[in-house]
Amino acid sequence: MTDATETLLRVEDLRLHYQTRRGVARAVDGVSFDLRRNEALVILGESGCGKSSLAKALMRVLPRNVQHFGGHVMLGETDIMALNDERFRREIQWNRIALVMQAAMNALNPVVRVGEQVAEPLRVHRGWSKERALERVAETFRKVGVSTDFIQRYPFELSGGMRQRVVLAMALVTEPDLVILDEPTSALDVLTQAAIMNVLKRIKRDEGTSFILITHDVATSSELADRVALMYAGQIVEFSDARQFFHDPAHPYSKMLMDSVPRLHQPEAPGHIPGEPPDLINPPAGCRFADRCPSRFERCDRDPDAFSLDERRRVRCWLHEGEDA
């Protein structure tokens, strides 16, 4: 068993820019964070903040119009940015990092039995025989709560919740160090959503898997998070322990976002954040949240650094300049 506090993934200054008709979109613009083993990091952000691009950058599933892709990503002792595409595909993808893409449950091949689809990473990346792979599939299905009878079924014969579990099984079947989940429950109903989150909690507890959960939904994020990275306009604006983030957020954006979350048992109405997030193609100079920020002051015209409030907490906001530890 590895040390629980061992750092599994260290990302430094990761950048992913796209070339579009209107100009360069800075979808991921200098993102740094680290992830320990058996930890769940939630990357939280509104649509268009670059969180899905971050997932694609880590898994290196890039669209064709990439203009710039750079930074440092250490997975354990491996500098995975230094690997060429071929080695990355062979050694990292699926073997050590698995990705559950947004709406992946609707992207299952409709004419292939789900068991074979889940076995595919083992057959392709490990060269296992069909029997051996299907055995592992059955084992993984039990972990995610899918009846092993379903191995022989086609995707359309399964409900949405079951398909999502199958997709999850596909990511877990190679027993990767890290599973990246991009909005794994956003299309599902409340009860199904809760059931899937239960599965993830169980796997994290029993298997020691590390997760990066990407979501726009604060409530969902609280179901798994050990730590939270809040993204805004391509940057991480706050990176905190979950407890700190949910109960005492530091960045003005975090505060407003937490305030906008409706609470079932809270008498006062939730608030909202006025305005729109900035364009990733021409982000404003200085702090990117400044236009919507109630605490804006002169310094905000300059790009804030990520100030470390304490050992485990970084906030990209001038308000915390003096508190730098």
Partner: peptide, 20 residues
């Protein structure tokens, strides 16, 4: 059960499984 499946945002949510 619908109400049990959702909880107000809290860091402890990650620690317990929901009754579904």
């Amino acid at each position: 059960s619908l109400l049990a499946a959702i909880a107000d945002v809290d860091a402890d949510n990650a620690l317990e499984e929901r009754d579904v």
